[in-house]
Design a protein around this nucleic acid. Structure first.
Lengths: 123, 123
DNA sequence: GCATGTGTGTAGTAAGTAGTACACACTACA
DNA sequence: TGTAGTGTGTACTACTTACTACACACATGC
């Protein structure tokens, strides 16, 4: 049995989004998106069908821009975390490590409250 | 001119730490540490001198355990972020992305205050 | 009914990652 | 003075990442 490689969450999401855009704009074919993003159409096709794993961070970013998607969200679907965020963490690794582990169990609204607190400069 | 590959921060730190331990315990030679950590002595030697880039996360973890170092700190020196932390971030990528970017400019004590707040369950 | 566009199959590859295996020369010490 | 331990040089490699190049068969519109 030749296993038909099952779609990855990343690939499925990509295809869904692109097809949606394609309904109202024929510039969103596999070929044209691939060209604008800077990869071969066959490669993009394989990614969308999960025959290839998600591409590099740079390519994910280009895809996010092209499809109007949030970069952090799309990177997450690709199993990655932005190297920019990683750099921030690496500057104070123990501090951020403890914080992130704490927040793993906190509900969304609690994290959001903190984001707002920090943004409003309440320290 | 054959450039003598300059030491990486990771390698330098490793060597310093191991040599310090070696002063009071001869079990901390390159050979013996390498053996306990599960790599070739020549490989560890090259890493310490920066002739090889930092090793895999698994090996960094083994080294941290062996040398009594903080894992997150040593991973940071190796230019990495724990895959465990990355997994936490990927579960709520936009939330964590915004938080981390906000905190990039916050001073240590502000971040620490938040860590304590969260730990004390003040939400 | 023919050019143009579409998705996809096959084959290959350059560069990076994460090491191993073995030998050599030097040192300590008993 | 010889044996055990030390750090390091050389050479090699299996695996993964991140793609490219090209061809094919189908569909669509004018």
């Amino acid at each position: 049995m030749r296993d038909p490689p099952q779609p990855t969450p990343f690939g499925a999401h990509l295809r869904e989004r692109r097809e949606a855009l394609r309904l109202t704009d024929r510039r969103f074919s596999v070929r044209q998106v691939a060209q604008r993003v800077g990869v071969q159409p066959s490669y993009l096709s394989k990614i969308e069908r999960g025959e290839q794993p998600p591409p590099s961070e740079a390519t994910v970013r280009a895809l996010a821009a092209e499809l109007g998607e949030d970069v952090d969200l799309l990177l997450a679907l690709a199993g990655k975390v932005s190297t920019e965020l990683q750099a921030i963490i690496r500057r104070r690794p123990q501090l951020f490590a403890e914080l992130i582990r704490q927040l793993d169990e906190a509900p969304d609204h609690a994290v959001l409250r903190i984001v707002r607190e920090v943004r409003d400069g309440s320290w």
